[in-house]
Amino acid sequence: MTASPKVGLFITCLADLFRPSVGFAAVKLMRDAGCTVEVPRAQTCCGQPAYNSGDRKDTRAIAEQVIAAFEDFDYVVAPSGSCTGMISKHYPELFEEGSQWRLRAEALSAKTHELVSFLVDVLKIDHVEAQFDGTVTYHDSCSGLRELGIKQQPRQLLGSVKGLTLQEMEEAEICCGFGGTFCVKYSDISNEMVSHKTECIGAANADTLLAGDLGCLLNMAGKLKRQGSNVQVRHVAEVLAGMTDLPPIGEEH
């Protein structure tokens, strides 16, 4: 590793569109850890909507675009387990074994990390300088948990935030029902799943819900809002970076 690792931030389409502050929180956390962070303009989305709809051709085209835009960085970091999983676990499979693109995809895969896992597992950060007065509960997003093994890392860093109490909910590892286009295509089933999730959130008696993926966060925040819940929703990076001045997800700006 060089003295100041050069990181390409994969902002993710949802953070770009709905929650830029997640991106700025990610930048702050990585700069504090001594990284140089850049944001390539030539990025759009990781390609999951096409990939999970069976459209291999467009998925490959988007993957090639991401690979070309990011392969010169020391690391690629995304504030999402789902997009990170797409790049690190699925991109290589899109290309024929032994092909140039396959090799480039594998090289990118090896240096792509989810934000919190990057801080803890790669940069060996064991605490952050932040303050958050409140009780939070943490939802484990599926891809981060099961594809990337992210479970302890966010809890470890949250444990170092002054004033913060972590209250675990029941079934924290169960899917919230987002699933990309699933939540729109099978909205009734998705609704049942997110309703079960908000029941578990409510029972945890926390005032803030945190997670590492905006898809899940928008889904859970939207349901909590519809139910009139007072639980506030934020991306975990906002709390770790101490950037909680702006309103929570789904609240008035």
Partner: peptide, 20 residues
């Protein structure tokens, strides 16, 4: 499909790319 069962959180003022 989304708003039948849940609200859609509104975006912040600009995209991240614009702000950056």
């Amino acid at each position: 499909g989304w708003t039948r069962h849940r609200d859609l959180p509104a975006p912040e003022r600009n995209t991240f790319q614009e702000l950056w």
